[in-house]
Design a protein around this nucleic acid. Structure first.
Lengths: 109, 109
DNA sequence: AATATTAATCGTAATATTGCAATGAATAGA
DNA sequence: TCTATTCATTGCAATATTACGATTAATATT
Protein backbone atom coordinates (compact mmCIF):
# COMPACT_ATOMS: atom_id res chain seq x y z
CA UNK A 1 0.00 0.00 0.00
CA UNK A 2 0.94 3.64 0.12
CA UNK A 3 0.37 4.09 -3.58
CA UNK A 4 -2.58 6.09 -4.80
CA UNK A 5 -5.25 3.94 -6.46
CA UNK A 6 -5.68 6.08 -9.53
CA UNK A 7 -7.72 3.43 -11.33
CA UNK A 8 -10.65 4.04 -9.02
CA UNK A 9 -11.09 7.59 -10.24
CA UNK A 10 -11.87 9.41 -13.44
CA UNK A 11 -9.21 10.94 -15.64
CA UNK A 12 -10.36 14.42 -14.69
CA UNK A 13 -10.15 13.65 -11.00
CA UNK A 14 -6.64 12.29 -11.31
CA UNK A 15 -5.67 15.23 -13.47
CA UNK A 16 -6.92 17.84 -11.06
CA UNK A 17 -5.27 16.03 -8.16
CA UNK A 18 -1.98 16.01 -10.07
CA UNK A 19 -2.31 19.72 -10.75
CA UNK A 20 -2.94 20.40 -7.09
CA UNK A 21 -0.01 18.25 -6.14
CA UNK A 22 2.27 20.38 -8.29
CA UNK A 23 1.25 23.38 -6.20
CA UNK A 24 1.35 21.51 -2.91
CA UNK A 25 4.70 22.79 -1.76
CA UNK A 26 5.55 26.32 -0.64
CA UNK A 27 8.85 26.24 -2.53
CA UNK A 28 7.04 25.60 -5.79
CA UNK A 29 4.52 28.32 -5.01
CA UNK A 30 7.40 30.67 -4.30
CA UNK A 31 9.22 29.71 -7.49
CA UNK A 32 6.13 30.36 -9.57
CA UNK A 33 5.57 33.70 -7.90
CA UNK A 34 9.14 34.75 -8.61
CA UNK A 35 8.81 33.68 -12.23
CA UNK A 36 5.54 35.56 -12.63
CA UNK A 37 6.96 38.69 -11.06
CA UNK A 38 10.30 38.82 -12.81
CA UNK A 39 8.94 37.35 -15.99
CA UNK A 40 12.16 35.38 -16.39
CA UNK A 41 14.72 33.86 -14.17
CA UNK A 42 17.52 31.38 -13.67
CA UNK A 43 18.05 28.68 -11.13
CA UNK A 44 20.92 30.44 -9.40
CA UNK A 45 18.97 33.51 -8.41
CA UNK A 46 16.23 31.28 -7.06
CA UNK A 47 18.73 29.64 -4.75
CA UNK A 48 19.54 33.07 -3.38
CA UNK A 49 15.92 34.14 -3.05
CA UNK A 50 14.66 31.00 -1.38
CA UNK A 51 16.91 29.49 1.23
CA UNK A 52 17.06 25.99 -0.19
CA UNK A 53 20.03 24.14 -1.62
CA UNK A 54 20.65 24.24 -5.33
CA UNK A 55 19.90 20.56 -5.74
CA UNK A 56 16.56 20.96 -4.00
CA UNK A 57 15.53 23.92 -6.14
CA UNK A 58 16.56 22.04 -9.23
CA UNK A 59 14.32 19.17 -8.22
CA UNK A 60 11.31 21.43 -7.70
CA UNK A 61 11.98 23.06 -11.05
CA UNK A 62 12.04 19.64 -12.63
CA UNK A 63 8.63 18.82 -11.17
CA UNK A 64 7.17 22.08 -12.37
CA UNK A 65 8.64 21.42 -15.80
CA UNK A 66 7.19 17.93 -15.85
CA UNK A 67 3.65 19.17 -15.34
CA UNK A 68 4.30 21.80 -17.99
CA UNK A 69 3.83 24.83 -15.77
CA UNK A 70 7.23 26.24 -16.59
CA UNK A 71 9.70 26.00 -19.42
CA UNK A 72 13.43 26.56 -19.53
CA UNK A 73 15.92 27.32 -22.21
CA UNK A 74 19.65 26.96 -21.88
CA UNK A 75 21.51 30.21 -22.21
CA UNK A 76 25.21 29.69 -22.05
CA UNK A 77 26.06 28.37 -18.64
CA UNK A 78 22.79 29.45 -17.10
CA UNK A 79 19.21 28.41 -17.74
CA UNK A 80 16.34 30.77 -18.29
CA UNK A 81 13.07 29.65 -16.79
CA UNK A 82 9.67 31.17 -17.30
CA UNK A 83 5.99 30.44 -16.94
CA UNK A 84 4.25 28.54 -19.70
CA UNK A 85 1.33 30.90 -20.35
CA UNK A 86 -0.85 28.22 -21.90
CA UNK A 87 -0.51 25.83 -18.99
CA UNK A 88 -0.96 28.71 -16.57
CA UNK A 89 -4.28 29.59 -18.16
CA UNK A 90 -5.35 25.99 -18.16
CA UNK A 91 -4.64 25.67 -14.47
CA UNK A 92 -6.58 28.83 -13.80
CA UNK A 93 -9.56 27.50 -15.69
CA UNK A 94 -9.43 24.05 -14.17
CA UNK A 95 -9.48 25.36 -10.63
CA UNK A 96 -12.10 27.97 -11.44
CA UNK A 97 -14.29 25.28 -12.96
CA UNK A 98 -13.88 23.03 -9.96
CA UNK A 99 -14.84 25.71 -7.47
CA UNK A 100 -17.43 27.31 -9.73
CA UNK A 101 -20.55 25.48 -8.71
CA UNK A 102 -21.06 26.97 -5.30
CA UNK A 103 -23.42 24.86 -3.29
CA UNK A 104 -26.03 27.46 -2.36
CA UNK A 105 -26.96 24.95 0.22
CA UNK A 106 -29.65 24.53 2.74
CA UNK A 107 -26.90 24.08 5.34
CA UNK A 108 -28.13 20.67 6.31
CA UNK A 109 -25.18 20.19 8.63
CA UNK B 1 15.27 15.69 6.08
CA UNK B 2 12.06 14.87 4.32
CA UNK B 3 10.18 17.56 6.18
CA UNK B 4 9.07 20.68 4.40
CA UNK B 5 10.97 23.77 5.53
CA UNK B 6 7.97 25.98 6.09
CA UNK B 7 9.97 28.62 7.93
CA UNK B 8 11.63 29.68 4.69
CA UNK B 9 8.37 30.83 3.15
CA UNK B 10 5.69 33.39 3.78
CA UNK B 11 2.47 32.56 5.54
CA UNK B 12 0.54 32.99 2.33
CA UNK B 13 2.81 30.63 0.46
CA UNK B 14 2.49 27.95 3.10
CA UNK B 15 -1.23 28.48 3.21
CA UNK B 16 -1.72 28.13 -0.50
CA UNK B 17 0.50 25.05 -0.55
CA UNK B 18 -1.57 23.53 2.25
CA UNK B 19 -4.75 24.26 0.32
CA UNK B 20 -3.34 22.63 -2.77
CA UNK B 21 -2.22 19.64 -0.73
CA UNK B 22 -5.77 19.13 0.48
CA UNK B 23 -6.84 18.76 -3.14
CA UNK B 24 -3.83 16.71 -4.16
CA UNK B 25 -5.54 13.36 -4.08
CA UNK B 26 -8.20 12.04 -6.46
CA UNK B 27 -10.18 10.51 -3.60
CA UNK B 28 -10.52 13.91 -1.94
CA UNK B 29 -11.46 15.51 -5.25
CA UNK B 30 -14.09 12.82 -5.72
CA UNK B 31 -15.44 13.25 -2.22
CA UNK B 32 -15.80 16.99 -2.70
CA UNK B 33 -17.52 16.52 -6.04
CA UNK B 34 -20.02 14.12 -4.52
CA UNK B 35 -20.73 16.54 -1.71
CA UNK B 36 -21.19 19.43 -4.13
CA UNK B 37 -23.43 17.45 -6.44
CA UNK B 38 -25.69 15.94 -3.84
CA UNK B 39 -25.77 19.21 -1.95
CA UNK B 40 -27.76 17.42 0.64
CA UNK B 41 -25.39 15.52 2.82
CA UNK B 42 -24.06 12.15 2.02
CA UNK B 43 -23.32 10.05 5.02
CA UNK B 44 -21.38 6.86 4.75
CA UNK B 45 -22.38 6.17 1.19
CA UNK B 46 -19.04 7.54 0.12
CA UNK B 47 -17.54 4.16 0.86
CA UNK B 48 -19.90 2.63 -1.68
CA UNK B 49 -19.38 5.30 -4.31
CA UNK B 50 -15.62 5.27 -4.24
CA UNK B 51 -14.01 1.88 -4.03
CA UNK B 52 -11.82 2.53 -1.02
CA UNK B 53 -11.99 0.98 2.41
CA UNK B 54 -13.97 2.67 5.15
CA UNK B 55 -10.86 3.46 7.14
CA UNK B 56 -9.27 5.14 4.14
CA UNK B 57 -12.31 7.27 3.38
CA UNK B 58 -12.53 8.26 6.99
CA UNK B 59 -8.94 9.39 6.88
CA UNK B 60 -9.51 11.54 3.80
CA UNK B 61 -12.61 13.03 5.39
CA UNK B 62 -10.55 13.89 8.42
CA UNK B 63 -8.03 15.76 6.30
CA UNK B 64 -10.74 17.67 4.50
CA UNK B 65 -12.30 18.53 7.83
CA UNK B 66 -8.98 19.66 9.21
CA UNK B 67 -8.50 22.23 6.47
CA UNK B 68 -12.08 23.31 7.00
CA UNK B 69 -13.36 22.42 3.54
CA UNK B 70 -16.09 20.18 4.87
CA UNK B 71 -18.06 19.85 8.05
CA UNK B 72 -19.88 16.92 9.56
CA UNK B 73 -22.57 16.49 12.13
CA UNK B 74 -23.48 13.31 13.90
CA UNK B 75 -26.92 12.05 13.07
CA UNK B 76 -27.78 8.98 14.98
CA UNK B 77 -25.35 6.28 14.03
CA UNK B 78 -24.26 7.98 10.85
CA UNK B 79 -22.50 11.26 10.13
CA UNK B 80 -23.74 13.90 7.76
CA UNK B 81 -21.07 15.69 5.75
CA UNK B 82 -21.29 18.74 3.59
CA UNK B 83 -19.20 21.46 2.04
CA UNK B 84 -18.32 24.46 4.15
CA UNK B 85 -19.50 27.24 1.81
CA UNK B 86 -17.26 29.88 3.37
CA UNK B 87 -14.10 27.83 3.02
CA UNK B 88 -15.15 26.80 -0.47
CA UNK B 89 -15.43 30.41 -1.52
CA UNK B 90 -12.12 31.23 0.09
CA UNK B 91 -10.40 28.45 -1.80
CA UNK B 92 -11.95 29.66 -5.03
CA UNK B 93 -10.70 33.16 -4.42
CA UNK B 94 -7.25 32.10 -3.31
CA UNK B 95 -6.63 30.08 -6.42
CA UNK B 96 -8.16 32.70 -8.67
CA UNK B 97 -5.92 35.31 -7.10
CA UNK B 98 -2.85 33.17 -7.53
CA UNK B 99 -3.47 32.55 -11.20
CA UNK B 100 -4.89 35.99 -11.88
CA UNK B 101 -1.79 37.88 -12.85
CA UNK B 102 -1.19 36.35 -16.23
CA UNK B 103 2.31 37.12 -17.35
CA UNK B 104 1.61 38.77 -20.71
CA UNK B 105 5.16 37.95 -21.36
CA UNK B 106 7.66 38.69 -23.99
CA UNK B 107 8.28 34.95 -24.20
CA UNK B 108 11.91 35.24 -23.29
CA UNK B 109 12.31 31.46 -23.29
C1' DA C 1 -29.69 -6.87 27.51
C1' DA C 2 -27.98 -8.53 23.05
C1' DT C 3 -27.04 -7.48 18.46
C1' DA C 4 -26.35 -4.62 14.38
C1' DT C 5 -24.75 -0.49 12.17
C1' DT C 6 -21.79 3.42 11.52
C1' DA C 7 -17.67 5.72 11.62
C1' DA C 8 -13.37 7.07 14.16
C1' DT C 9 -8.90 5.46 15.56
C1' DC C 10 -4.82 2.46 16.00
C1' DG C 11 -1.20 -0.19 14.13
C1' DT C 12 1.26 -1.59 10.32
C1' DA C 13 3.15 -1.93 5.62
C1' DA C 14 4.14 0.06 1.25
C1' DT C 15 5.26 3.91 -1.28
C1' DA C 16 6.19 8.95 -2.08
C1' DT C 17 8.27 13.26 -1.03
C1' DT C 18 11.71 16.40 0.72
C1' DG C 19 16.34 17.87 1.25
C1' DC C 20 21.13 17.84 0.57
C1' DA C 21 26.08 16.41 -0.36
C1' DA C 22 28.58 14.70 -3.99
C1' DT C 23 29.28 14.17 -8.57
C1' DG C 24 28.81 15.04 -13.52
C1' DA C 25 28.14 17.70 -17.88
C1' DA C 26 28.37 21.83 -20.29
C1' DT C 27 29.86 26.40 -21.38
C1' DA C 28 32.63 30.81 -20.52
C1' DG C 29 36.72 33.09 -19.73
C1' DA C 30 41.83 33.18 -18.57
C1' DT D 1 44.20 23.88 -21.80
C1' DC D 2 42.81 25.02 -17.16
C1' DT D 3 39.59 26.86 -14.13
C1' DA D 4 35.26 28.78 -12.65
C1' DT D 5 30.41 28.84 -13.07
C1' DT D 6 25.93 26.94 -13.59
C1' DC D 7 22.68 23.56 -13.26
C1' DA D 8 21.24 18.46 -13.65
C1' DT D 9 21.60 13.96 -11.69
C1' DT D 10 22.58 10.43 -8.38
C1' DG D 11 22.34 8.39 -3.98
C1' DC D 12 21.05 8.56 0.55
C1' DA D 13 18.46 9.63 4.98
C1' DA D 14 14.45 11.54 7.14
C1' DT D 15 9.78 12.26 7.01
C1' DA D 16 5.03 12.11 4.99
C1' DT D 17 1.27 9.92 2.69
C1' DT D 18 -1.74 6.21 1.33
C1' DA D 19 -4.23 2.12 2.30
C1' DC D 20 -6.37 -1.30 5.05
C1' DG D 21 -7.40 -4.79 8.77
C1' DA D 22 -8.60 -4.77 13.42
C1' DT D 23 -10.45 -2.57 17.15
C1' DT D 24 -13.20 0.74 19.55
C1' DA D 25 -17.09 3.83 20.74
C1' DA D 26 -21.50 5.22 19.96
C1' DT D 27 -26.23 4.88 18.83
C1' DA D 28 -30.19 2.04 16.93
C1' DT D 29 -32.85 -2.09 16.72
C1' DT D 30 -34.55 -6.34 18.37
Amino acid sequence: MGATKTDLFTKKQNELAAMAKALAHPARIAILQVLVKTNACVCGSLVDELGLAQATISQHLKELKQVGLIQGTIEGTSVCYCINPKAWLQYKEFFAMFFKELPENKSCC
